[in-house]
Amino acid sequence: MIQYAAIILFVFGLYGLFTNRNVIKMIVSLNVMEVGLNIFIISIGFTYDGIAPILSSTTANGLLYVDPLPQALVLTAIVIGVGTTALGLAIAKSIHKTYNTFDLDEMGDKE
């Protein structure tokens, strides 16, 4: 179920990127898309009634774990997403400095 939500979020992000011509809004759309993707990744490893995958001397074998790998992946993906967003915002700032607007359509033919 949660996977549908994730995919819908992802598609929302794509839609936002598709329809917006404002640089900031496009970056936000990218973020929405990434959030959707991250949720999707997490959902892959999720097991109903599973416990946190922490290995200790007290836990017995045979218990249901949540798959720890997607969680590790999501951490990395989030970091990368933040990096991309930061870079995007920096570029947005430089766009604003050059054209005095965030809207790609208002920049005219100046290239």
């Binding site: 496009m26 999707f40 892959i44 995007g88 290239e111």
Partner: peptide
């Protein structure tokens, strides 16, 4: 040309997201 760089960034981000999507499905 910041707009061109942004264009590249946006498409690149979408591209790698799609790639990750595919990878995760394979993992699943």
């Amino acid at each position: 040309k910041p707009t061109n760089t942004f264009h590249y960034l946006a498409l690149g981000a979408v591209g790698s997201s799609l790639f990750l999507f595919g990878v995760i499905i394979l993992y699943a």
